[in-house]
Amino acid sequence: PPITSSHLPSHFMKGAIIQLATGELKRVEDLQTQDFVRSAEVSGGLKIDSSTVVDIQESQWPGFVLLHFVVGEQQSKVSIEVPPEHPFFVYGQGWSSCSPGRTAQLFSLPCHRLQVGDVCISISLQSLN
């Protein structure tokens, strides 16, 4: 089932305090690509993947969008359903969503429009070998 809109967490709200893996505290709107990269480096067990948006469709669930990504070096195909206001962090660009207007309305978080070809930051478990 998709992530429900009513449960979109408040950590996307402008001003929310985020703790990096280094212990540093930053506001969500001030985060930069390097913050995620460094956090992944110092945290055990997690790694950052580059996830490229390859398609954006309407979901069968009303009010949701279906996002298709290719993830990591393996180019694995992963699809997720989210509300259009759900922000993703795009490399070198920052927060982006399918509906920047709704994101601004709900979270006051400035966003770019998420587009096919954007490379988002995602995490996965680090391989044990």
Partner: peptide, 25 residues
């Protein structure tokens, strides 16, 4: 009286999606 307000602190990894293939190759 001013009651102390707690400030929520969220971990960085809660902001990014966990994307992993359900069936590894």
């Amino acid at each position: 009286n001013v009651e102390p307000r707690s400030v929520a602190v969220f971990p960085w990894h809660s902001l990014v999606p966990f994307l992993a293939p359900s069936q590894p190759d």
